[in-house]
């Protein structure tokens, strides 16, 4: 017994070093579980407040770009208004309401929340954004996040008033996307090289591809509504070891000046997940 105490005293610094290393590494490798722990929420609240202070200053320098992006989105949405689509009068007319509401069931699938970005990084290999809207304002884990120009990321954690978004420029981020022209589905991920480009994989070599083609979110995506802009094709290589293309996409969102985002809540997600879980058993 005495020898054990002597041993601990003699190697106290080394043991202390090992203990701290193990704590740090366990934080790192149990990242997702750790995120749900209470102290991450407290820390998120504090860093969120400091980020917001910084953003209030930075915000003014980007107002012009933000205005342009919002104006463009307004024009796009105005074009979608129902008044713009008028058919010539015929004897029989079929009127479709935009939302079917039953007295018992809701048919609405997505609901949208706007949020202001208060912190963002694009220089690391794992990039995150902080938005000023949290659990108290309806944000939950795994919601999709889009910007005026295209998709931005997904929520990884939310504290009371702030939430952290894993941006598309993160090596852990994956999303299902399709080519607008031919409808082939593939997976979008980031290779960490440049913040302006991401990679689209799993598109078969038979698909017709030209530079400038639009890539949209696919119907298979579990967090985004279909048809949201991901990016445009900037180049493609035929992977010699497989039957698929590796396509370089220019992201639709400019991550260096994203100021406002929209968080998407999929109201039928729980039902879908439950159904998918039930066949796994």
């Amino acid at each position: 017994m005495r020898n054990i105490f002597l041993f601990i005293r003699r190697y106290f610094n080394f043991i202390f070093f090992l203990v701290l290393q193990i704590i740090a590494l366990s934080f790192l490798f149990r990242y997702n579980k750790f995120h749900e722990a209470a102290y991450m929420n407290v820390a998120g609240e504090i860093t969120g407040k400091i980020n917001e202070r910084y953003n209030n200053v930075q915000y003014y320098f980007k107002l012009k770009n933000t205005n342009e992006a919002l104006a463009k989105e307004n024009v796009y949405l105005r074009n979608l208004l129902r008044e713009n689509y008028q058919a010539p009068d015929t004897a029989k007319r079929f009127i479709v309401d935009s939302i079917r509401i039953d007295s018992i069931k809701r048919f609405q699938k997505y609901s949208y929340y706007d949020a202001r970005v208060v912190g963002s990084f694009i220089s690391a290999q794992m990039n995150y954004l902080t938005i000023h809207r949290g659990e108290a304002q309806g944000i939950k884990k795994d919601m999709g996040v889009i910007g005026p120009q295209g998709i931005v990321g997904r929520i990884v954690t939310a504290s009371e008033n702030y939430a952290v978004v894993m941006s598309m420029l993160n090596q852990n981020f994956k999303v299902k996307a399709k080519l607008k022209k031919s409808g082939e589905n593939g997976t979008v991920e980031w290779d960490g090289v440049s913040p302006q480009y991401v990679l689209l994989r799993d598109i078969p070599k038979s698909a017709p591809i030209a530079n400038g083609d639009t890539v949209l979110t696919s119907e298979l995506s579990s967090i985004y509504p279909p048809g949201i802009m991901v990016g445009t094709v900037a180049g493609s290589i035929k992977d010699p070891s497989s039957a698929f293309y590796i396509i370089k996409l220019k992201t639709a969102t400019n991550f260096s000046n994203v100021q406002y985002v929209t968080v998407i809540d999929d109201l039928q997600k729980a039902e879908r997940q439950q159904l998918e879980e039930s066949i796994k058993k």
Partner: peptide, 26 residues
């Protein structure tokens, strides 16, 4: 070591990478 650990962890909270900078600091 304790100061360095807390220091690295503070940076990690800002960058959302718990432990990544704390380990090299220690």
């Amino acid at each position: 070591m304790l100061v360095s650990f807390l220091y690295g962890l503070t940076l990690d909270y800002f960058l959302n990478t718990p432990g990544l900078h704390a380990a090299p600091c220690v």
